[in-house]
């Protein structure tokens, strides 16, 4: 099932082209039902869980697609896991393709007197969405964006395939929104969403790294200098071999962790998967530009799209260094 999903996504996104815009990719993924991938069957989904979603993230990464799929999937999961009364109508709205925003980096939101205060960083789709999914140890909620006390600041980034915003909430009312969890339930749900986010970023990074690497090897086979294809030079071959091994390792860790989601510490596994995948993608991108040579620093070639996404992905989630420190804490016991 997941393999079929992956193949279908691959075909659809290959047709859409590398770095395809939101206008193209969002309607496509809504129509193809990708928002329903992780949703349980009794709620109208196809119940492939996080591994199913990761197959899609991988393909979106492969084609550096622009669609704000991750915020939508986080919101779907948050709503599905919550006990709210009008859950089904929310699921219907979201799966119908209503844009939803969610932070891809830090989110610190508190609730006071029925209003929200705090900040959400690297929020995708904040301008087109009606609601922002906020999640912290204190509260998980769908907060209305078009209301008083909400400030949306566009943050133009080098990765033009992602439109990011900082959102500041200052006593923002929840009318028209919904609280999904509070207290202990919020902590648990927030943790679950963090795991989802980390695996999503890992899968996307692995997909993108694979695509960029394949592109590079193809280029080396085609480009001739000194009367031979560049791919014949051992100095370049060995660099490619190392990259291939590193990508395989990140991919194996991702798949292995997805297989073991229910049995072990999911938070740590998500952190490891994200850290290694983002770091590997960064290394691949760094090397791929160098191996392509001059063409890679021009906009004529797709390399720069992958490079910019790689630079950004390192810093999403908890950011570089923080992941390493958290993983170390799991080994050191504190």
């Amino acid at each position: 099932m997941i393999e079929e999903l992956k193949d279908a996504a691959h075909r659809a996104l290959t047709d859409a082209g590398v770095g395809a815009s939101e206008d193209k990719t969002w309607p496509l993924l809504v129509e193809l039902g990708w928002l329903l991938v992780a949703l349980p069957e009794d709620l109208g989904g196809i119940e492939q869980g996080l591994p199913g979603a990761c197959a899609i993230y991988g393909e979106l990464g492969r084609s550096v697609a622009a669609a704000p799929y991750l915020p939508a999937m986080l919101a779907m999961e948050a709503v599905t896991q919550s006990g709210i009364e009008d859950r089904d109508s929310w699921i219907e709205r979201l799966s119908g393709g209503e844009y939803v925003a969610a932070p891809l980096a830090r989110c610190s939101v508190r609730v006071k007197g029925g209003a929200l205060s705090g900040a959400a960083s690297a929020v995708q789709a904040a301008d087109t969405a009606e609601h922002l999914l906020v999640f912290s140890d204190e509260i998980v909620a769908m907060a209305p964006l078009k209301t008083k006390g909400v400030e949306i600041v566009p943050r133009i980034t080098w990765d033009e395939t992602r439109r990011l915003f900082d959102v500041r909430l200052d006593g923002a009312a929840l009318d028209g929104g919904v609280v999904l969890a509070e207290g202990d339930a919020a902590r648990a749900l927030s943790r679950r969403l963090t795991v989802h986010r980390d695996f999503a970023l890992a899968a996307e990074s692995v997909g993108a790294a694979n695509a960029m690497f394949e592109m590079t090897v193809e280029y080396l086979k085609t480009r001739k200098q000194y009367g031979r294809p560049l791919a014949m030079f051992q100095a370049l071959k060995h660099r490619c071999a190392d990259l291939k091994m590193q990508i395989s390792a990140a991919e194996a860790l991702l798949q292995d962790s997805l297989d073991k989601l229910d049995t072990e510490d999911a938070l740590t596994m998500g952190r490891m998967a994200k850290q290694l995948a983002a770091a590997t993608y960064f290394t691949v991108a760094e090397e791929a530009v160098q191996l392509h040579g001059g063409i890679a620093v021009t906009k004529e070639h797709a390399c720069h799209l992958y490079l910019k996404r790689a630079l950004l992905n390192q810093h999403l989630g908890e950011g570089v260094d923080r992941y390493e420190l958290d993983i170390a804490a799991s080994v050191l016991g504190a």
Binding site: S248, A252, L253, S257, E324, I327, A328, A329, L332
Partner: peptide, 21 residues
């Protein structure tokens, strides 16, 4: 040291996953 250990730990788990798969 903690940061380096964190990065290494992910690699060690990945090496296990590679061999296992």
């Amino acid at each position: 040291l903690r940061r380096d250990l964190g990065a290494l730990t992910a690699k060690v788990h990945a090496a296990c996953a590679v061999a296992d798969r």
